[in-house]
């Protein structure tokens, strides 16, 4: 355990715990766009920037991303100093130039007093904030079907060579985890389209409702040791099966008792 000061309050934290987690636990609102509990911190959005100093640093201060900076003994953290707000505002100014029509960015920028960017807006703005949550979630799950490509203003999330990704299983985790709903997918009947690839959804034998894609089911049964027949029935039919089994057991035990 280490003790440090955050906004004038002394708090205790686990050694090596990242500052953002400690700050969030105190209920202080620090914006962070690339933070997701399922993946390692990334330090991509830079919005969780905080001011750190120590008594022994002789008034010297440093500005670090809270999501990547581990808690240290006697650290003095200021999450909303004038300089930090200024840094965040200029970052949001840049975000607004790239994603002028994204509600998430608009709201954050408005909270910092910005309604319009002072930079030139990119020619074809989209909703991708390049937080990398989609690619990191995909890596974490073990597929690594998509990644960041290009550099500078051309940076984007894409499958290899911009073709239908062979490693994708169509689990939709990237689209579901996307904070701005930029990743588009289509579920029509028993087909699912994402990243330019078409998947066939398994359908429940009893209710006819789609469950997950054939590829995802095959992956789970191969690597996670789950019988493939589990995927052939949806949750509703599974519950009915359980109810009738429990019903039969109850009936039988009641009959045994009354004998």
């Amino acid at each position: 355990m280490v003790s440090l000061t955050i906004n004038g309050k002394v708090v205790r934290a686990e050694e090596g715990e990242y500052l953002l987690a400690v700050i969030r636990r105190m209920g202080i609102d620090v914006p962070a766009l690339c933070d997701h509990a399922a993946v390692e911190p990334y330090g991509g959005c830079r919005l969780c920037m905080v001011e750190i100093t120590k008594e022994s640093w002789d008034g010297w201060k440093n500005y670090v991303t809270a999501c990547l900076y581990p808690a240290e003994q006697d650290l003095i953290v200021n999450t909303h100093s004038e300089k930090v707000i200024e840094l965040r505002t200029s970052l949001l100014d840049l975000f607004l130039a790239r994603n002028p029509e994204t509600p998430l960015i608009q709201k954050l920028a408005a909270d910092h007093g910005l309604t319009k960017t002072s930079f030139e807006v990119v020619p074809e703005p989209n909703d991708c904030i390049l937080c990398g949550i989609c690619t990191r979630v995909c890596d974490e799950m073990g597929f690594a079907a998509i990644s960041m490509v290009n550099r500078g203003h051309g940076r984007e999330v894409a499958p290899p060579l911009n073709e239908a990704p062979p490693d994708c299983v169509g689990c939709l985790a990237c689209a579901q985890a996307c904070p701005t709903n930029y990743i588009k997918f289509e579920d029509i009947g028993t087909t699912r389209k994402i990243w330019g690839r078409e998947f066939e959804l398994l359908t429940c034998e009893k209710t006819g409702r789609p469950t997950i894609t054939r590829e995802f089911a095959a992956f789970l049964s191969k690597h996670r040791d789950i019988p493939e027949e589990y995927f052939k029935v949806n949750d509703e039919a599974h519950r009915d099966e359980l109810a009738s089994t429990m019903g039969r057991i109850t009936r039988w035990s009641v009959q045994e008792e009354t004998k």
């Binding site: 939709l172 995927f231 949750d235």
Partner: peptide, 22 residues
Amino acid sequence: LDHDKCVRCMACIAACPFGCSL
């Protein structure tokens, strides 16, 4: 289930043999 960690891939819903993940 940790809702912050969950990426809503629906694997658990499909995998549960009792249909109690929904």
